[in-house]
């Protein structure tokens, strides 16, 4: 290992790989439960594995499954996934100056943005270490894919996921991301409002609507950003 202040792309990639390991382990467990849940709402094993391979966005995939489990339709499911993933717009925009190449290459590099990698690759002052990002994401992709395969193919051989407490992985994992997100900024009130909107609608609204409706809380950003900037 060289001790130069500017790491080579290969060094950055390796550093990213190592930094991504804890998230990859947690993500692997999470995707295992995704594989099991997807089977329960009618996915074939192949369908669940293909979804993890080509979507690779945990919160969106769980949003889809929980809406389907509640009886929601394709439109509500895809809309929820799109809203859930809309955070990748500002994340991708922030990353843009640190990417290189033509539009196709930039678009491909943008696919490597996942929450934990993006946050860890942030070097401050608008700069991102893209090779670190690629490394941190690639190890998470491997476990996301293989965890889904294990859950989808072997879920019936496993004991009941609820007995093992595996149903707590999904909300706990996203609570970890949410609390990290709340550390910087003033999103706490918005998160609380979103939670209350969703809970208030659970007994009365059709499946999927409570989570979608929570996005209304984000409209607080219309005012707040102006005063902050």
């Amino acid at each position: 290992m060289s001790s130069s202040p500017q790491p080579t792309p290969r060094e950055s990639y390796r550093t990213g790989l190592r930094a991504g390991v804890p998230f990859a382990i947690a993500g692997g467990l999470l995707s295992l439960t995704f594989g099991v849940l997807a089977r329960e709402v009618g996915f074939s094993a192949l369908g669940a594995i293909v979804m993890s391979a080509i979507v690779f966005a945990g919160s969106a995939q769980f949003a889809v499954v929980s809406i389907l489990a509640g009886g929601g339709g394709a439109g509500a499911a895809i809309l929820a996934a799109a809203l859930m993933n809309s955070r990748f717009l500002p994340m991708g925009a922030a990353l843009a100056p640190s990417l290189s190449g033509g539009w196709l290459k930039r678009a491909a590099q943008g696919q490597t943005v996942v929450d934990a990698s993006w946050a860890m690759a942030n070097r401050g002052e608008g700069r991102f270490d893209r090779h670190f990002l690629f490394g941190a994401t690639s190890v998470q992709y491997v476990t996301w894919f293989s965890g889904t395969a294990i859950g989808a193919l072997g879920g019936s051989a496993l004991p009941d996921p609820e007995t093992l407490g595996l149903d707590a992985i999904f909300p706990a994992f996203f609570l970890g991301l949410l609390i990290a997100e709340l550390r910087d900024g003033h999103a706490g009130a918005v998160a609380l409002a979103g939670a209350l909107i969703a809970l208030a609608l659970v007994p009365v609204a059709p499946a999927g609507v409570p989570v979608l409706a929570a996005s209304i809380a984000a409209l607080a950003g219309l005012r707040r950003r102006r005063s902050a900037s």
């Binding site: 929980s66 918005v190 998160a191 979103g194 809970l199 996005s215 950003r225």
Partner: peptide
């Protein structure tokens, strides 16, 4: 940017509480 920046927090919170 202000709205989008807050969407993840609102949606994550909603997903967490509807599960928990």
């Amino acid at each position: 940017a202000g709205v989008i920046g807050l969407l993840a927090s609102a949606l994550l919170a909603a997903l967490i509480v509807t599960e928990a």
